[in-house]
Design a protein around this nucleic acid. Structure first.
Length: 790
RNA sequence: GGGCCCGUAGUCGAAUGGUAAGACGCUACCCUGACAUGGUAGAGAUCGAGGGUUCGAUUCCCUUCGGGCCCACCA
């Protein structure tokens, strides 16, 4: 029997039991078609945030729906473990340690985080098969990543080169463009005097005077009348260094004085210009963020050097003026420190040579919603340099190569060395006779995560070819340019030649209720754990389903989750009523259905059809809303009220028919809600329908419409109008709806079937009904309330 | 500057080539034997603005204004 109310203890009971009974195990031996989810491995921060809650709920709906539709669902759980944030935290706790020890601490820390996150995920009722987990820090995972790099190297898609790259001076590592973010800041634009070829003063504006020692050229726009005459001549910087004056179309005439200095390397344009005009490279900033090769300022930090040179040049009268300037600077997204450019040897993956192929492959994937592919097009078209895949860090997948000390050539590690680690490296000799040292750099974590569809398909063996491509890749829209892009590139283009998934399903971000981004500094962060305590997992999951259209950011809504909780209460009580109504129900007996019963069953058939369509299109909000409305309004407000007189009354046939319909409706409804609200569905299934289709509602079949019952609809709609009229009359007279009325006179265009007249009398509680033909009207003028009876 | 998304009642938000769900909030009444986390009834939107296509547009096209996201640039 259902207990009085639905509470957290019921949810926890089922969470425990599902784990014990391995309800969601992937069972390919069953011989059903497979459905594979290439699920996002969360970064192991230890905390599940609202974005996780939303996106994981999304594909949990899919997984549960597909299971009920006869698929063997492969729903693995991965963990993205390596990278800067963990290193930062571990370093803070333990300080800098030798790499092997440091890595060990990182792994221990990560284990703890995984345990915490797993608990939260269980608490949300997610249904991965916990027997299939992968962690990017595991030796097996390293092996697969490294093998993928060796194969790409063989195809010429991975190479080592010296190139200016984004560099974080705090983390002392190369970064990919996707590791950076833009930030506005206010800075000074400084005007200095350089000396022209004929000794005339030339004003030049710069925000980075500290790089003047690395100045390689002075540039102007080719059509700038003021400076045309300088072309090809020498100019002396304020520090007295001679550099060429060069015309270039990318110089803005009206910024500053129209004259600029190119320093190697102050920003991205400097890099472009230096390559375009083959300028000499002066490394003025070291990898530690301190100045070098400047004579005067070596060893200073960038900001110190800036102050020093401004002070010096002001004294010499070379500083003309300073202006405030709003400027966008790139920051390392993980540590928020400004990013510099540093020329250094790094490993690259060739993406600029493959943008069109990547786009073509992406087009073979179904994008839901379809506009999502534009994010990938934009990225593919705008990316300017190859992907820097190496990081000068410790907690990461080692890059499996050797480098010759003498000639700088590279040699892949042997396959029997995998998983490769520089600490266990072999002694190799280069063709030139030099000694080869193992690479100590590690991979960018997107290198790890861009092969998840291969990892879960057990690449390279791929014993079960049905596992690749994955059926579905669910992910956030904000990581199309990283996770989706790199996965299509690596798993797809480079390693298999096939798109990694059939469908990609995009979800948006959860904003704070005020519509702004959630952030600690704004204090508007909502913790899932708190919501779980107050509203329960099944309510939070319904909120996720109701959160509107896909790939769209959506503020968190307390209204929605409150409604979801209220709905659970409504459903629970409706189920309790039905449970008590079913006492003595003989399911084996064929019911004699009345028009109202047939109307209800057909409403259910329609709801099943619509919900199924919505689920097939991943329109969870549509499915949930229509199911909620169906149960609350069609079932509870109308049908339940319409059959109460039969349930409590004497007539065995009418009672049995109502029981049959109530039983059928609740059963199908409970199953259709199961993907969204697994706990309450399981409890109702277990208490009221125990084992009808196996041990769990989640292994039962998704409902199909039953026998159709057309024809009753229009008549019953008339009945509903009549009942509504009676309800209005009672409300207007301040009478309880339970009051019996002596009489009513109803006028209808067409005569109403006597069965429905009787229904009307019993439902609306009216003793005598007089029928007339004509325009619709209900007249209670002669009606008198009667003392409530039996 | 480029791309994408959006602009619907007080709020949040669906759908739709034939004048518009639902939820929250609001008003009145009702403790009716599942539920007051309830029930019944009700008020509230000319669908950002302008133009076009059409017999007819909130829905299609163009322009415009206003939001949001992503990308590029800022010496």
């Amino acid at each position: 029997m259902l207990q009085k109310s639905f509470d957290n203890s019921i949810e926890q009971k089922w969470q425990k039991r599902w784990l014990e009974e391995n309800t969601y195990a992937f069972r390919p031996e069953e011989g059903k078609p497979l459905y594979t989810l290439d699920t996002p491995p969360p970064f192991t921060s230890g905390e599940l945030h609202m974005g996780h809650v939303l996106s994981y709920a999304y594909f949990d709906f899919v997984a549960r729906y597909k299971r009920m539709n006869g698929f063997s669902v492969f729903y693995p759980q991965g963990w993205d473990t390596q990278g800067f944030p963990t290193e930062v935290k571990v370093e803070k706790k333990y300080g800098r340690l030798p790499p092997p020890e440091f890595r060990k601490k990182c792994m221990e820390w990560t284990e703890d985080m995984i345990a915490k996150m797993r608990e939260s995920m269980v608490g949300m009722g997610y249904s991965p098969d916990w027997g299939y987990q992968y962690r990017t820090m595991d030796p097996e995972y390293h092996k697969t990543v490294q093998l993928s790099l060796l194969q790409m190297h063989k195809k010429g898609m991975v190479y080592r080169a010296k190139h200016p790259v984004y560099w974080c001076t705090r983390c002392r590592s190369a970064l990919a463009k996707t590791d950076t973010e833009d930030s506005e800041r206010s800075t000074m634009l400084n005007y200095f005097i350089f000396d022209g070829p004929d000794g005339e003063p030339l004003e030049i504006a710069t925000t980075r005077p500290e790089l003047m020692p690395a100045c390689a050229a002075v540039m102007f726009h080719p059509e700038d009348e003021r400076y045309r005459h300088l072309a090809g001549r020498k100019i002396k910087t304020a520090l007295g260094k001679e550099v060429p004056a060069i015309a270039d179309k990318d110089v803005l005439k009206d910024f500053g004085t129209g004259l600029l200095m190119v320093c190697t390397f102050g920003d991205k344009m400097d890099v472009i210009w230096a390559y375009r005009h083959k300028l000499p490279v002066i490394e003025a900033i070291g990898t530690d963020g301190r100045m070098k090769n400047t004579e005067l300022f070596d060893g200073m930090k960038v900001e110190e050097a800036k102050k020093a040179i401004i002070g010096m040049l002001r004294e010499k009268g070379k500083l003309v003026k300073q202006e405030q300037l709003q400027q966008a600077v790139k920051l390392h997204d993980r540590c928020k420190h400004p990013v510099e450019f540093a020329p250094s040897y790094q490993w690259f993956a060739d993406i600029t040579g493959h943008r069109e192929e990547i786009k073509r492959l992406a087009e073979q994937v179904e994008w839901v919603p379809s506009f999502g592919i534009h994010y990938l097009y934009d990225w593919a078209d705008s990316v300017e340099w190859d992907w820097v895949i190496s990081r000068q860090r410790v907690f990461g997948t080692p890059i499996p190569f050797y480098i010759c000390d003498k000639c700088n050539s590279v040699r892949p590690c042997d396959e029997d060395e995998l998983p490769f680690s520089p600490e266990r490296a072999k002694a190799h000799t280069c063709g030139c006779g030099g000694k080869m040292r193992p690479e100590t750099d590690v991979c960018d974590c997107w290198v790890d995560s861009s092969i998840t569809p291969l990892v879960i398909a057990d690449w390279p063996e791929m014993k079960n070819p049905e596992l690749y491509p994955s059926s579905l890749r669910p992910q956030g829209v904000e990581i199309v340019r990283t996770w989706a892009f790199y996965t299509i590139y690596r798993s797809g283009l480079a390693l298999t030649g096939k798109p990694p998934w059939k469908t990609i399903l995009l979800n948006g971000n959860v904003l704070a209720p005020d519509g702004r981004k959630m952030s600690k500094s704004l204090g508007n962060v909502i913790q899932p754990a708190e919501l779980l305590r107050e509203y329960q997992a099944d309510a939070l999951r319904q909120w996720a389903a109701m959160s509107g259209a896909m790939a769209k950011d959506r503020p968190f809504s307390y209204e929605d989750i409150k409604f979801a909780k209220t709905f659970l209460n409504k459903w629970w009580n409706g189920a309790r009523f039905i449970e008590s109504s079913l006492s003595g129900y003989d399911a084996g007996k064929k019911p004699k259905l009345g028009k109202v019963d047939r109307w209800m069953l057909e409403q259910m058939n329609v709801a099943i059809g619509q919900a199924t369509e919505a689920m097939e299109r991943y329109e969870f909000h549509a499915a949930v809303k229509l199911l909620q409305s169906f149960f609350w309004h069609d079932v509870c407000d109308d049908y339940l009220e319409y059959v109460k007189y039969r349930i409590y009354g004497e007539g065995a046939e009418g009672r049995h028919a109502a029981q049959h319909v109530l039983h059928t409706i609740l059963y199908n409804f409970t199953k259709m809600m199961a993907p969204f609200t697994p706990h309450i569905s399981e409890e109702i299934y277990s208490e009221m329908f125990g084992g009808k289709e196996g041990p769990s509602v989640h292994l039962a079949a998704w409902p199909r419409p039953g026998e159709r019952h057309h024809g009753a609809h229009l008549e019953v709609e008339q009945l509903r109008l009549l009942v509504s009229a009676a309800r209005q009359h009672k409300a207007a007279c301040k009478l309880s709806q339970a009051t019996w009325l002596s009489s009513a006179s109803i006028t209808l265009p067409k005569p109403l079937h006597s069965e429905l007249v009787e229904e009307f009398r019993n439902i609306a509680r009216i003793k005598e009904v007089e029928l007339k033909e004509g325009e619709f009207a209900v007249d209670f003028s002669k009606s008198v309330p009667i003392e409530a009876q039996g």
